[in-house]
Amino acid sequence: MTVSIVRFGGSNCDRDAERALEHLGIDAEIVWHEDGLPADTTGIVLPGGFSYGDYLRAGAMAARSPIMAEVREAAADGTPVLGVCNGAQIGCESGLTEGAFTTNESARFQCERVFLRVERADTPWTDAYDEGEVIEVPIAHGEGRYEIDDDRLAELEDENRVLFRYCDESGETGSDVNPNGSKHNVAGVLGDRDTVAVLMPHPERATLPDVGPTDGQGILRGFESVADGV
């Protein structure tokens, strides 16, 4: 099992993701986007960063890299794909997931620890948690406000494709615990399949015990869960 971490020009959380996955005993390698996906890829991380300087829109350029056609194809075949921060923006821009992550309501870069409520515990990414559990994971973004047509958001919610919402320590959601103005406090969503997920918070920065809280480990263990057939 090898998780490919796709490095674009301006990715900067690729090594963090590699360290975090290796800490969990999950084999991972960084792949330059122009080289395409290795044949032995069993999982894909779209890492955080500022690909192409966030030109045009965050994630817009990377989403049009030829490797993303391979990523979409792999995702459709059931290969687990996790997009984090800029990777989440790329995921939405490329159509892996619905909606868009755009300028924070504050118009500021928000770098802080936040609480997330696990909306579903029956996905590979959340198998380690209970539904409704509150986990602490950091965010670091200027464009993380989840935006989508209201009707479409209602449909996504009906389809149980919202994976995480920003909340307080007790799991209550509301505008006062919404760091970026995301609609309905959405922090992460699933794609067409439960094996595809994107989120703005950084699980790889909440995995190594030396760095702080380790609540993000369960999300990265999603790659193991898929391999184990969960």
Binding site: L56, R57, A60, R64, C92, E93, E98, G99, A100, T102, E147, I148, D149
Partner: peptide
């Protein structure tokens, strides 16, 4: 359609 605009927003 394909790049300059994002139809979601």
């Amino acid at each position: 359609e394909r790049l300059l605009a994002n139809p979601t927003i």
